[in-house]
Design a protein around this nucleic acid. Structure first.
Lengths: 201, 201
DNA sequence: ATGTTTCCACCTAGGTGAAAACTT
DNA sequence: AAGTTTTCACCTAGGTGGAAACAT
């Protein structure tokens, strides 16, 4: 039989906007968290390959603590320093991609954008936003789960992907002004803060 | 066994904004169709009861020709008149509610809004919008389909609902100025055309 | 004539970082 | 002093009917 069903370990995800993520990561990515919920910028934008076109999948985004530390911005040095152990982690909420469940063909047809995921520091949030601790480091993680078997994350068929350049520190206000500038330059919603001559449209 | 699964004929749909629809219907509802696609106003907003909370359903909206006639607005009389037979009907497109498929519990929890359905007169539309003939009368129809059996509309379990007050004539520009006024009064996106003193906010 | 298309000012809806106000 | 919350001007994105231009 020439056409063989893809195995779970044939699934390949590519971070489509990796260059932008690396620009941020080289400086030290920060993500604003607010009580009312804030989107992430950059967003996690992925391309998928190797899915079974006819099978059904669920895509999840998770933000896991990257380490056991609490950080502080050291303005004089222009760097982050560890100031102690992390706050106890909360039960992690996951963001289910709104197209879920959808066929492998659907997921492979176009880039997969986690545009609308929101992060918050409100421990009592009722919207289902992902709750983070300010001044803690997080690592986004993507799960691809064959749907319809009811096992979800515990399924042995689930695949997990990590892109190290998407790591970030959650903040309630930007600490490193270079990060603020990069955001202004690239996030269309911050266009109003651009100075003439660095308009990336 | 005291808890019995609901039968298909136990499903009940209520048109939540029936009063608004009736205000339009008493004048003669018109819906603008454009090449680029136009939303309907009012929207079909429904409440569902009697679904099996654990079962999965798909909700569809369909716009079927209400009769075999083509119409013309008679400005002097302020009424519509039949001017001949309808154009041949096109293969009807349906709008799948974006929450589909979802559990009965989900559909019953909150009003079901067909807010985003778009209608067009572009016969070559590639967006999947519902294609209509201008100056023809249409009747919205809702289908509730138990999901997961692969039969969809041909399934004997599918339920169909019609609310006669949602009937309308498709136009490329409003014919009856009373309809235009009602739209301006009630559609928030047309607020810019409101004269002071009839702001329904 | 009659019906369609394009364009537009005016909205709704909501995502930005900065600055000010607030908290501890 | 350090971090958080609120507010705000400025955007993106896109849904309105009307008027003018266009088509037939």
């Amino acid at each position: 039989n020439a056409t063989e069903k893809p195995h779970a370990n044939d699934i390949r995800l590519t971070l489509q906007n990796a260059t932008l993520w690396k620009d941020f990561h080289s400086i030290g990515t920060e993500m604003i968290i607010t009580k009312s919920g804030r989107r992430m910028f950059p967003q996690c934008r992925l391309a998928a390959k190797g899915l079974d076109p006819a099978a059904s999948y669920i895509f999840l985004l998770e933000l896991i603590p990257a380490d056991g530390s609490k950080y502080k911005w050291h303005a004089e040095a222009g760097s982050w320093e560890v100031i102690g152990p992390a706050e106890p982690a909360l039960p992690s909420r996951t963001y289910i991609h709104p197209d879920s469940p959808a066929s492998g063909a659907h997921w492979m047809r176009a880039p997969i954008s986690f545009l609308k995921v929101k992060v918050t520091n409100n421990m009592t949030d009722q919207h289902g936003y992902i709750i983070l601790h300010s001044m803690h480091k997080y690592q986004p993680r993507i799960h691809v789960i064959p749907a319809g078997d009811g096992h979800l994350l515990s399924s042995p068929a689930a695949s997990t992907f990590v892109f190290p350049e998407t790591e970030f520190i959650a903040v309630t206000a930007y600490q490193n002004s270079k990060i603020a500038s990069l955001k202004i330059d690239h996030n269309p919603y911050a266009k109003g803060f651009r100075k003439d001559g660095r308009n990336h449209k």
